[in-house]
């Protein structure tokens, strides 16, 4: 079965969606991602959707679910790289992805996540710097 790879980068998980998602694939991603958050005790999840041309209400709900579930497990979710056409469409559709953080690209997303978990002690922070 088709799966979307999840990369571990230090305390973060990075998912780059590069295929057109159909519903089952999106559900599988939600499931895999939440399991990975739990297994790796990740502090942040970055979902790069810059290559995604269509986000409908189902996909929007999955993104919202991932954010809410991760939050319960103390991980922040950032959706990065949404295309302008997709953003305009989502607004028209009536979906604002409340609770999901957004950033323009992976770099800014990482920065945002690092600020979110900035309370961690400096030793560890130095460790993250070497990853970025």
């Amino acid at each position: 079965m088709e799966r979307i790879p999840i990369l571990k980068m230090g305390p973060f998980l990075l998912v780059t969606i590069q295929v057109d998602l159909y519903d089952r694939l999106a559900l599988t991603l939600e499931n895999d991602l939440i399991n990975m958050v739990s297994k790796t005790e990740a502090k942040g999840v970055l979902i790069d959707i810059s290559a995604v041309s269509i986000v409908d209400s189902f996909m929007g709900r999955i993104l919202g679910n991932i954010a809410s579930m991760s939050k319960i497990m103390d991980a922040a979710t950032v959706v990065v790289g949404m295309q302008p056409a997709v953003a305009i469409t989502l607004v028209e559709l009536g979906l604002t992805l409340a609770g999901v953080h957004t950033a323009l690209d992976v770099e800014q997303g990482m920065e945002l996540l690092r600020n979110k978990i900035g309370q961690l002690d400096t030793d560890e922070e130095g460790l993250y710097d070497s990853f970025i």
Partner: peptide, 12 residues
């Protein structure tokens, strides 16, 4: 408001 919401979705 729509313009602001769309920009937020993109991370701005």
């Amino acid at each position: 408001i729509k313009t602001v919401s769309a920009a937020r979705l993109m991370g701005a």
